[in-house]
Structures are given as structure tokens and as C-alpha cells.
């Protein structure tokens, strides 16, 4: 580390050497795994999401019926060996479509969340840093915040519908729409974190030493603001899955017959009242489980980043401790 490196003055909490980072990362990963193993209610979320992702990945390799080709003779067939989850009103195999759907649903959710998080947090970081600087920077920060207010003032679905109507139906439009809807969340979250961190002594020290805005953000502020952002991202991915499914349900989602849980529910819900529950029930269950799993992942990250929660003994540890004392 050179003497002119402002980080030397700042007391940065993360190691800087590459090897040290690797060691630290391995240690953190190990500790996190242990944390999860001791908390099955969080672990189950990872297992569900892994299973759903895996089903999307291996579905094309399995000997399944085509998820997009209709069998005209198999109209609303109830679950059977030939069709484990039955068929829908177009003669499409529900089981095959439920397994293929994560390829679309998770892709939409992950990409839209990632781009919203990237742009939202970058904007939020600058807004937080510039807010009280005065001049053009302060004006720009206020303008960005007001724009976020405008986006947030619209009902989420109305905004998403307008965007899909303007951009046209398709995956790209949905990704952009959901991203824009979520962008202000990350902006505000990052701004809040920056406001908290920017007054820390190590940041002030770096600033006094002549560090520029970008250097301050990338080396000191963003790395320390990341954990709540990651937690928000995993929760938001679940919300994005729901939003994508909701858009498909109202006809503004992916094009038929693309396997996607929301459109499957929309196509099948009319049959529920006449007793054909399977075309919408199975995708509904898959959707609910996935959102639940993503929610548990988000909760686990929040718990992990909270020192009190992280160090709280698990029920198993309490039991072992009590038995040891007796």
C-alpha cells in the first residue's frame, strides 16, 4: 500500500490485498454456510430456488412433452401418468410448462432486478453524496429524487402496463418495465446508506486526503452499503416474479404460448369454476413456492448482516447448551 493511497488513512473495513480478499471471502462463505445450516427456515429458501432454477435448466434435457405444441386431442385432460399435471384448454402439457417456466420467469426477474439495482444504486449513491454539496451537483440530486417521486407516484401495475403498451409486448419490454418500477427503491435505499456512511470518519479522512467522488464511492461507500442492497435484491426478485406473472395474467406479459406461470394461471383460471383446477393450480403453486423461497433468501441476508441476529444461538444450540449444563 503506497503512502499516497487515501485508503491508508481511512481504516477501510475490508482487506485490500487480493490474496487476503480470497481468504476472507472463503471464510465468510464458510461462516455463511454454517449460519444457514443452523437455520433450516432460511436454508429451505435456497433449496427451493435452487430446485426451481435447476428445473428450468434441465427441462430441455428431460423427455417431456413440448411446452409450446398443442395436442388438439388432449383438451383439459386431468392429471394422469401421461400428463402428470394434466393439460390446459389448448391441449398443452401443464407439467412440461411448469418446469420450463422458470427459464422465462427467473430470467425476467433476475435481469430486471439487476439492472434496476445497478442504475438505481449508482444514481442513489451520487444523490446521497451530492445532496448537500450545493450548486449544480445539489440541483442534479434534487432533480433525480423528484423524478423518482414521479415514478413512485404511479400505481405499479398502471406504470408497468403503460410501459409495456408503449414498448410493445415481449420479454424485453417486461424487463424494462419492471426495472423502471423498481429503480426508485434502490435509489432511495442507496441514498439512505450513503447518507449514513458518508459522515463516517474514514470517509471524511479520505475526502480530506483528496479522494474524488468516484473513488470515495467505489472504495469506501458502496462496499459498505452493499449488504442491505443484496437483501433488497433477493426480496425484489420475488416481487419481480410476481409482477411479471401479474402482467402476463392481465395480458400484457410474454406472448402465448411461451411457458410462463402468470400466463398459465390466466389461461386456466376460468376453468376452475367448472372443476378443471389443474391448469392454474400447479403454476400457481410453483409461483408461490418460488416467491416464498426468494423471500427466505432475502430474510437470511438481512439476518446475516445484522450482528445481533447473526450471533443469536439457534434452537439446536440452546438445546445442546441446556443438555450440557444438565
Amino acid at each position: 500500500m503506497s503512502e499516497t493511497d487515501p485508503a491508508a488513512l481511512g481504516g477501510q473495513p475490508f482487506a485490500n490485498e487480493t490474496g487476503g480478499e480470497q481468504l476472507l471471502a472463503t471464510g465468510v462463505l464458510k461462516e455463511f454456510c454454517g449460519f444457514l445450516m443452523n437455520r433450516p427456515s432460511y436454508l429451505v429458501g435456497y433449496l427451493i430456488v435452487a430446485l426451481v432454477a435447476l428445473s428450468g435448466l434441465v427441462a430441455p434435457l428431460l423427455p417431456l412433452a413440448s411446452p409450446v405444441d398443442a395436442d388438439a386431442g388432449a383438451y383439459l385432460v386431468p392429471p394422469s401418468w401421461a400428463h402428470p399435471m394434466g393439460t390446459d384448454s389448448a391441449g398443452l402439457d401443464v407439467f412440461s410448462r411448469v418446469l420450463f417456466a422458470p427459464r422465462v420467469d427467473l430470467a425476467i426477474a433476475l435481469v430486471s432486478t439487476c439492472w434496476a439495482a445497478c442504475f438505481g444504486s449508482v444514481a442513489g449513491a451520487f444523490v446521497g453524496l451530492w445532496e448537500e454539496r450545493g450548486g449544480i451537483k445539489s440541483g442534479a440530486a434534487t432533480l433525480i429524487l423528484r423524478m423518482a417521486d414521479v415514478i413512485q407516484a404511479f400505481p405499479v401495475f398502471a406504470l408497468a402496463l403503460v410501459l409495456v403498451a408503449v414498448l410493445g409486448q415481449g420479454m424485453t419490454s417486461i424487463i424494462i418495465a419492471i426495472g423502471i418500477v423498481n429503480l426508485p427503491l434502490y435509489l432511495r435505499l442507496m441514498r439512505g446508506e450513503v447518507l449514513r456512511i458518508r459522515d463516517q470518519s474514514y470517509v471524511e479522512a479520505a475526502h480530506i486526503a483528496g479522494a474524488g467522488d468516484i473513488y470515495l464511492l467505489t472504495r469506501h461507500i458502496v462496499p459498505n452499503a452493499a449488504p442491505p442492497l443484496l437483501a433488497q435484491m433477493s426480496i425484489n426478485t420475488g416481487v419481480a416474479v410476481l409482477l411479471a406473472a401479474g402482467l402476463s395474467f392481465i395480458g400484457a406479459g410474454v406472448r402465448a404460448p411461451t411457458p410462463e406461470w402468470g400466463s398459465m394461471i390466466a389461461m386456466g383460471f376460468q376453468n376452475v369454476v367448472t372443476g378443471q383446477w389443474w391448469p392454474s393450480m400447479f403454476p400457481g403453486l410453483a409461483l408461490a413456492l418460488t416467491v416464498f423461497g426468494l423471500g427466505r433468501i432475502g430474510a437470511s441476508i438481512l439476518a446475516w448482516t445484522n450482528p445481533r441476529e447473526r450471533s443469536r444461538p439457534t434452537r439446536r444450540a440452546w438445546k445442546a447448551f441446556s443438555e450440557g449444563r444438565n
Binding site: V68, A70, S89, A90, Q169, A256, P257
Partner: peptide, 29 residues
């Protein structure tokens, strides 16, 4: 028409049938 549910199911059935003669149609709801 999104307002007529059976048009979508007929469209999917027709799309599958057309694949058999090499015609690919994109469905626009």
C-alpha cells in the same frame, strides 16, 4: 382479441398445426 379467451386457445392450436407445414406464426395478443 384478449377479450375473447377462446381465440387464444384456437391460436395456439393453429400455431401448432402450422408448424407441421413449416409455417411459423407469432401470436399477438
Amino acid at each position: 382479441n384478449a377479450g375473447i379467451p377462446f381465440e387464444e386457445t384456437i391460436a395456439i392450436m393453429y400455431q401448432t398445426a402450422l408448424k407441421k407445414i413449416g409455417v411459423t406464426i407469432e401470436l399477438k395478443k
